[in-house]
Design a protein around this nucleic acid. Sequence first.
DNA 1: TCTCTATGAATGAACG
DNA 2: CGTTCATTCATAGAGA
Lengths: 195, 195
Amino acid sequence: MDGGSQNGAYDGRVMTEEQMEILSKQIAIYAAICGQLVSLHESLSSKLPLSSGVDPTGGGYFDSMGASPSTYKISHRHRWTPTSMQLQILESIYEEGSGTPKPQRIEEITLELSQHGQVMDKNVYNWFQNRRARSKRKQPQAMTTTTVQTVDAVAATEERSYGDSGGFESYDHILFPSTDFGIEHLLDGGIFRER
Amino acid sequence: MDGGSQNGAYDGRVMTEEQMEILSKQIAIYAAICGQLVSLHESLSSKLPLSSGVDPTGGGYFDSMGASPSTYKISHRHRWTPTSMQLQILESIYEEGSGTPKPQRIEEITLELSQHGQVMDKNVYNWFQNRRARSKRKQPQAMTTTTVQTVDAVAATEERSYGDSGGFESYDHILFPSTDFGIEHLLDGGIFRER
DNA sequence: TCTCTATGAATGAACG
DNA sequence: CGTTCATTCATAGAGA
């Protein structure tokens, strides 16, 4: 990336660290998703028995399933870490208005999440608990107009436009949204291209 | 694995309805994710990397100032650094016997500290948490100066052992995979575009 | 400059 | 539920 404006002692228009960080995160999620997408594609298009609990990319932190069944020492890599996908789903559900995670609902969510990585009910429960607790503990400390070149206030406009209809409960709801990205472009260019 | 089209003895190179369906599914998921990605971006881009997304507090980040005589860089967000004054106060309070400062107390302390530099209660909270955790870990080990490294080394070793099963344990591994997706393209087209 | 350490911050899990 | 503990990640600053 040429960056261009490298003239001078101070370059202002290249990415800031912050943006870089954000970008990284996005790419991370994007990459993870794409990986799963590919897996899904392979599974489905070859009509393989799509066994439950496909764990392609998202959650490799569990060293359980794998090489030696006899020597599964369940290394103490405790502490479940939600995958990007799982996080998205969880947040969606959280904002779904149902601020109260019903005990039965937990299981449903768990089931859904387990499609993207290993999860237990307890994890989901904890997550919601923490989430709520955390939300409440927000500091009334007013920001002193730090304005780190905050890009847009558009967030307010489009914010959570997806959360109202209870979308992520099952895939049926998101199967055919009004997509109109440059799909062909993407397909042709990168995702589906084999390397 | 290509054939096997069961409905109809027709095996061609064009897409079958089934495949079409699959593709649609994939695209749908992809689209949904991208939508959330944008939301995530909006959340993140306004402030620090709060991976959980919603933190409207806009808790401004700032840089330590005051004590350090020469260099104060206002542009570096991230990581509050307590001034020496603040440190003294904090330590005093810490030793005051109140091993666990109550949440309300935190605010008082924050107020007090803010007289000597910018602080947020979150910072104070974290400080006490870390302080206590740190003390506790040093105690049980009669480490005589050199042992510290040993322990750390062991820990480090154990930590670094992840990634064997495909490696998605932490973001580090998926932040920049060998992606070939035209990132710049995407950026230019949508995510980072201001509107 | 590069590395290593100290420590602020994030968060899953647990306690009352 | 609210609060606290434990573990881990990331980064600023010191040292080589």
